[in-house]
Design a protein around this nucleic acid. Structure first.
Lengths: 150, 150
DNA sequence: ATTTCTGCAAATGCTTTGCATTGCA
DNA sequence: TGCAATGCAAAGCATTTGCAGAAAT
């Protein structure tokens, strides 16, 4: 089991408290936070950390491949330290993002499929993202409740 | 074959020249333009049309289901008047977006898969988006050329 | 006639940038 | 010590908002 520090060091980037803190937050959570959410989570422990640093840090972590960036269509981007293939489901009401493990995204990342896409489009494809959009359980319940007049 | 005007009227939204123009552009192109690109395309014929109107118009068209919104992670959103299931491939170098027809996205939109996702996550899923990221043919060639020192 | 849409300009808010200071290697 | 990262504040942009006039039903 590598420590956060060891992981960063292995990627050959300078190890700073800010980078460890951001990566650590992303490792621990499964809420796919955006920059502002990361900022809020870090505030209690790192009151001096600036938003600009978080923007720069997620860029670095993304470039070395430690985190992935999700674009769910709400303006800002979301971040996820889970690198293994999986897809995401987005609640169009409250904005929550959850992982979808079961669907075999690995099948989509299969070399054969990527070949097919390359043959059709000419693109050299390296990344596949699958998003589901809908309503999360909580928001579904709220709407039902409202509909019943409560 | 319905005219643009008939299509808008069928959706029960007010028919204006601006809405016809925006929808017409999106029907004709396959370049998945963002708001700014739509604005530039319309400028010659509608020099008075404002960007704000385009923002409002794509919102309306999206809400009535005439167009879909794509989020490819570059900040702004892209628009597509093709409603039939298909996926997209994004060039990470030049930002071009192309359709991917061949891959059976309908399979992904299959009720069975959506049920599986609902069972795992509890989300009520209505939309599926599949994105491929990579390098388009032109940008691949350019890089090769550069690499050869030309 | 009424309601809704458009276009303008201002306001907002997110993200980036420049630079002096700090901190890692 | 040298180079890179941080934090701050300002700048930069894309998007939204409010409202008066125009247009659609």
């Amino acid at each position: 089991m590598q420590t956060i520090e060891e992981i960063l060091r292995a990627k050959k980037i300078k190890v700073t408290p800010q980078r460890m803190a951001v990566y650590s937050i992303l490792k621990k959570t499964d809420s796919h936070p955006n920059v502002e959410m990361i900022y809020q989570k870090l505030k209690p422990d790192y009151p001096a950390m600036s938003l600009a640093t978080i923007y720069k840090t997620v860029d670095v972590l993304k470039k070395v491949g430690l985190i992935q960036e999700l674009s769910v269509g709400e303006g800002g981007l979301r971040y996820d330290a889970k690198i293994r293939p999986h897809s995401h489901v987005y609640c169009e009401i409250c904005g929550k993002v959850d992982d979808v493990e079961q669907y075999p995204l690995n099948e989509l990342q299969d070399r054969f499929l990527l070949e097919k896409v390359k043959n059709e489009t000419g693109y050299d494809v390296s990344i596949v993202q699958l998003y589901f959009f809908g309503k999360c359980p909580q928001c579904s319940i709220n709407k039902e409740t409202k509909a019943r007049g409560a």
